[in-house]
């Protein structure tokens, strides 16, 4: 299995390389550069700036230098917009924040979602089932970016219970609203997937056999039904994890958390090439790793799957 994992990771290197090259050219295709401003710079000043950041070189040379710097020195270059900081600074500040609230939201969404889904399936066609399904669909249908202003209005202005934003090193009162905002919609979809998977499993032959043998319902669910139920859930969790980390721009915008989502979107809009590329690479690597983990988890749950 270790060999398989290593092969998968090595196999991803060309993918990441092409990803860098594609993003690089796509990025330069967008009109305007990092130093396009309302007050157009005099040509001699622009020339100095471009020389400093190597933007006066032909594109292929810039790309080559960029790749060499990464491979030889693990250097992702300076930010073109935040002039006091380089890309590694930004990532090392933003990533832990994003991961903290991302992972928390991920676990909250998974735990509540699975619990809700299992409960609904066990009490199939009862009020609990209907309630769980409606809650799930509603949570899923609610666009998650409107949660920010709603939560702040309620918890900060009206109730005065929670601070309206900031990170404060991840102190818990600052975590609550971002986690609720981010986890709600995923919780909805996880509960729905769990429910339908659980229903399918409960109707299958081996569960009927178990019932016939007289095992208690709790034991059947806990020992036999849960594991196969989790298979489709796990395959959904991989992408969810990536979205939670990459799609969290609205959390950073509304709650001033300082995570990577905001950097990523604003880098695209301000043409901060190096930051954009750095985060793109990070996300690409993350996708590859998460896909690998999903497959490993799959194998662990389902012995039928073997690695080639």
């Amino acid at each position: 299995m270790l060999g398989y994992a290593i092969r998968r990771v090595l196999g991803a290197i060309p993918t990441i390389l092409v990803l860098i090259i594609a993003s690089f050219f796509l990025m330069h295709l967008a009109p305007g550069g990092p130093f396009t401003s309302e007050r157009p710079l005099p040509p001699e000043v622009l020339a100095n700036i471009e020389a400093r950041y190597g933007l006066d070189q032909p594109l292929w040379k810039q790309l080559w230098d960029y790749l060499c710097n990464i491979v030889l020195r693990f250097d992702f270059g300076p930010s073109f917009v935040f002039k006091d900081r380089d890309v590694s600074d930004i990532i090392s500040q933003g990533l832990p924040i994003t991961l903290t609230y991302g992972l928390l939201s991920f676990f909250v969404a998974t735990l509540i979602g699975v619990a809700l889904g299992v409960a609904a399936a066990i009490r199939h066609n009862t009020w609990l089932d209907y309630l769980a399904v409606s809650l799930g669909v509603f949570a899923q249908a609610l666009p998650n970016f409107i949660m920010g202003p709603i939560l702040i209005l309620i918890f900060t202005l009206w109730l005065g219970w929670l601070p309206g934003g900031g990170w404060n090193g991840g102190h818990w009162p600052y975590l609550i609203m971002p986690v609720i905002a981010l986890s709600t919609s995923y919780m909805g979809s996880i509960s729905r997937i769990t429910r339908s998977a659980m229903l399918e499993v409960l109707n299958s032959n081996f569960i009927r056999t178990a019932r016939a043998k007289g095992l208690s319902e709790a034991k059947i669910i806990w020992r036999h039904a849960l594991k196969p139920t989790l298979l489709p859930v796990i395959s959904y969790l991989g992408p969810v994890f990536v979205y939670v980390v990459t799609g969290s721009v609205f959390v950073d915008i509304y709650f001033s958390t300082g995570g990577l989502g905001k950097y990523f979107v604003s880098a695209a809009l301000t043409r901060d090439y190096s930051v954009l590329l750095g985060i793109t690479i990070l996300y690409g690597v993350l996708t590859v790793v998460v896909n690998l983990l999903t497959d490993l988890a799959y194998a662990w749950l389902d012995p039928k799957i073997r690695f080639q």
Binding site: G148, P149, I152, T156, L157, P163, G164, G165, Y254, S256
Partner: peptide, 18 residues
């Protein structure tokens, strides 16, 4: 200085006394 991108959220937080 608190960085708040959204002006409406900023106003809410102002009214909350932050």
């Amino acid at each position: 200085a608190l960085v708040i991108n959204d002006e409406n959220v900023a106003l809410t937080r102002y009214l909350a006394g932050e």
